[in-house]
Nucleic acid binder design. Structure first.
Lengths: 342, 342
DNA sequence: TAAAATTACACAAACGTTTGCACAACAATC
DNA sequence: GATTGTTGTGCAAACGTTTGTGTAATTTTA
C-alpha cells in the first residue's frame, strides 16, 4: 500500500468523480462546490496525496529548476556562493540542480548539455579555468534558456553576469596603506593572463596616481601563486633598492606563504612590513599573524545577486523588447575590511 | 526557430514516418532499418534535437535524481562532502538536487516534503541540529524512496547511514601522545549532549586504559566551544595540580583559541605543551602554530561513500528479501595525520 | 507454390496533471 | 412558462516519450 504514490486518478475513482474535478478541487478552483472540495481534500489527506511535480513540470514545460555549474564545490568561495544561490532559489520557490566542472572544459561542456536536456529554466555558471572555446555557450543562448555568468566571466559579448570588482577593493587597500604613511608598497600579483591580476594592478595604479605618486613597475611582481613563487617574490622585495614597507598579496595563500617566510627571517609582521590580502578563506580571522586588512569579495552576496537576476530573467514578461536587449552586468564592489590589530 | 526545443514529433512529421519509429531509430532499436535510422539521425542532428529528460523521467517514473539536504553549504565539512556526492552522482549518471536546512528543523521538514514531491529517486541527508522529532523521516521511509543519513545520524532504528568514527581517531591521537611519553593528557571536549563528545571520550579512555593508565575525569573538560569557554578550560588545565603536557581539542577552532591563549602566556607550542586537534578546516595546514597532529574525518570520502550506498539502494533488484532487511551502517574510520614539525 | 519466418514500420496506450469546452441542473428574470 | 444566468461537474486533449501489439511487405523454408 505504501508502494506507489497516490494519484489524482485514484482519488477520483474512490469518490466516483472525474479527475478534473479532483484537480480543480485541490487547487481551490472557484467552479467547484464546497462540499465536493471538502470531500476531495479529506480523501487526499487520508491517502497522503502529493502532487507529482515531475508530471506538472512536464505538462507545463517549466521545471522550476535552475542549473548551477561551479568549478569546485569544496572551494570556500564557491561554497559560500552556492549557499547564497540556494537561499534565493528556496525563497523564490525554485529548485537547484548542482554540478561541478572541476575546472575541466570537457566536463563543463557535458554538464551544460545535461542541464539543457534536464530542461532547467535557467543556468548559473562560473566557467572553468580551462575553458577556451565558447561555442557551446553561444549555442546555449540560442536555446532561449537564460544564463547568468558568475565570478569567472567568459570573453563573450551580450551576456548577463555578476562579478566582483577587485579594482575598487585594491584601490581602497592601497589607499589605506598610503594614508598610514607608506610610500613604498609592493604587490605580489597573480599571473598576467588572469583578469583578476589586471584588475588588481589597475586599482593599485589608480591609488598611487591619486596620491600623485608614480607607478614603479618593479614593485609589482607576477607570481605563480605557489609557495616557492611567493618566496621568490619576497626575496626580490627584500633585496630591492626600494624595500617595501607594505605588501599587498594576491590571495590568502600567498599572504600566508609570505608572512611565514618573513617571520622565518625575523621580520616583524605588520610592524617592519604591513600586509594586506584578499579574504578568500574563513579561517584567516582566527590566526595569529594575519594581514592588517583584507579585501572581502562577498561570495555569499554575489551568489544571491546572481540567482536573483537569473530568476528575474526567467520570470520576466516576454515580448518586453526593452528588457530583451538589456544585459545585466552587475559588479559587486569588494570592500576593505580592516582587522582588529593585536 | 530557436524558440521551442525540437521534439520527436516534428522529426516524424518532417520525414513522414511515425513517432515510434523515430524513437526506436534514435535508440538504435534492432527492428528499424538502417536507412531509416540514418535519415532520422541526420534530421535529429540538423534540428539540434535533444530528448526531453523531464518527459522521459515522468514516463518512466524515475527522476534519475538524488536529493541532498545539508545543514550549511558554506561549512567546509559539508562543502567537501557535497563535492564527493556530486562526483559519484556524475559518474553514475545521476543528477543532484541540493538544498540546505540552515539547521532549522522546520525548513528541513519542508525540504523533505519538496524532495518527495520532486520524486527524487533517493535522499541523502545530514539532519539539522535542531531536529528533535522524527516522524517526517519515518514517513519518508514509507514512501519507498531510499534514504541514507550522513554524518549527523538521528536516533531512529533501521536506517542506512554513513558516519565517521571519532572514537578510533581519538584513540590513535591519544595513543600517539602516550608513545611520545606524555602521561598527563588533557582534553577539551565538546558539550556532553553531543554524540561526538561521547565518541571522543571513549577513544580517550580506551587509549589510556590500553596503556594501563587510569582515567582522570578532571583532565577531560566539557567546553561550549567558544573562545571564552576555551580560555576557561585552558586556565583550568594550567592551574591543575597535574598540569597536562599535551592537550587534545574538540576541533580546529578550539585548538586555535587554545593555542593563541597559550602563546599569550608565553607557553611554547608543541614544546611546553603538545596540541592535537581534529581537521575541520583546510587552512590549518598553512598556519604557523598548529597542532602537531590532527584527526582527519575525510568528508569528501564520506560523501562519496554515502552517495554510492544510496545509488546502490536505488538500483538494487527489488524482491531481494535479503537485501531488503539489511541496513548499511558504514563507519568511515578517522585517521591521525601527523603534521610535519617545524 | 503455399506456408512460415523475418523485416520494417505504424498504431495506440500509457505516465499524472491541467484546462478549455460542453452540458446538465437549478435558480432568477421577464 | 420560456429565456437567461449561475453553479457544479464531466469529457477530452495536451505535454514528449517509450513500448506492446498489429500488420503489411518481403524473404526463406519445405
Amino acid at each position: 500500500m505504501s508502494d506507489k504514490p497516490t494519484t489524482i486518478k485514484e482519488i477520483a475513482k474512490l469518490l466516483d468523480i472525474s479527475v478534473s474535478t479532483v484537480s480543480r478541487a485541490l487547487n481551490d478552483h472557484s467552479s467547484i462546490g464546497l462540499i465536493t472540495k471538502m470531500r476531495v481534500k479529506k480523501m487526499a489527506k487520508e491517502l497522503n496525496y502529493e502532487p507529482n511535480q515531475r508530471a506538472i513540470q512536464f505538462l507545463q514545460g517549466k521545471s522550476h529548476t535552475i542549473g548551477v555549474i561551479l568549478p569546485e564545490l569544496a572551494e570556500s568561495f564557491f561554497s559560500a556562493a552556492i549557499s547564497g544561490i540556494e537561499d534565493i532559489a528556496y525563497k523564490r520557490n525554485y529548485t537547484v540542480l548542482l554540478a561541478q566542472s572541476h575546472d575541466d572544459a570537457d566536463r563543463e561542456k557535458l554538464l551544460i548539455e545535461k542541464m539543457k536536456m534536464q530542461r532547467v529554466d535557467g543556468l548559473l555558471i562560473s566557467v572553468s579555468k580551462t575553458t577556451n572555446t565558447y561555442e557551446h555557450l553561444e549555442a546555449f543562448k540560442k536555446s532561449n534558456i537564460p544564463i547568468v555568468f558568475f565570478d569567472r566571466i567568459p570573453p563573450v559579448k551580450n551576456i548577463h553576469f555578476v562579478a566582483s570588482n577587485l579594482e575598487s577593493g585594491t584601490y581602497e587597500a592601497v589607499n589605506f596603506l598610503l594614508k598610514k604613511g607608506h610610500r613604498t608598497i609592493g604587490m605580489i600579483n597573480g599571473p598576467t593572463n588572469l583578469v583578476a591580476s589586471t584588475e588588481r594592478k589597475n586599482g593599485y595604479i589608480k591609488a598611487m596616481t591619486s596620491h600623485r605618486l608614480k607607478f614603479d613597475p618593479s614593485l609589482m611582481l607576477n607570481c605563480d601563486l605557489t609557495e616557492a613563487g611567493t618566496i621568490e617574490s619576497m626575496d626580490n622585495f627584500l633585496n630591492h633598492k626600494r624595500k617595501p614597507t607594505a605588501i599587498v598579496t594576491f590571495n590568502d595563500y600567498v599572504a600566508l606563504f609570505a608572512i611565514r617566510y618573513a617571520r622565518s627571517l625575523n621580520i616583524q609582521i605588520n610592524k617592519d612590513i604591513d600586509f594586506v590580502s584578499y579574504a578568500n578563506l574563513p579561517l584567516i580571522n582566527y590566526m595569529d599573524y594575519t594581514p592588517i586588512a583584507s579585501v572581502e569579495q562577498f561570495p555569499y552576496k554575489q551568489g544571491k545577486k546572481a540567482a536573483d537576476i537569473l530568476l528575474d530573467l526567467i520570470n520576466k514578461p516576454k515580448g518586453d523588447s526593452e528588457a530583451e536587449t538589456a544585459y545585466y552586468n552587475v559588479v559587486v564592489e569588494s570592500e576593505l575590511i580592516i582587522g582588529k590589530e593585536k
